[in-house]
Amino acid sequence: MGLISKLLGIIFAASGIAILFFGSSDPVWSIAYYILGLILMSVGLTLVTSRGESKERKPPPPTVTEIRCDNPECTFKEIRDFQKADYILKPMEAQCPKCQSSMTIHGIYVVREEESE
């Protein structure tokens, strides 16, 4: 939709400019062409420069749970989807598959897209 509106905008703006340039040699019609050219050009430029706010709502980024091994020498880390009753610093029942130590939920977070400035 965004691309189509941009293309239409370019076509409108170009037609407006062409009409403004070439218009009509008849003094009366030249005024009519002048107004038509201006309208087409402004509509076209509006379409080109509009940000095209999409009506589609983006789904929120998924929430993930990061589980880490409590042994400071072990680097085991698991990231999985958030499950109900998860909370940060919750001790896990499962043991570390690498060193058999206990594990804790280290973080629950989303990774949001960087805002465009």
């Binding site: 929120p60 929430t63 973080g107 977070y109 989303v110 990774v111 949001r112």
Partner: peptide, 12 residues
Amino acid sequence: AAAVGVLDKRIL
């Protein structure tokens, strides 16, 4: 939005 929304990785 980040203050009332799910914790952002950059904040963590």
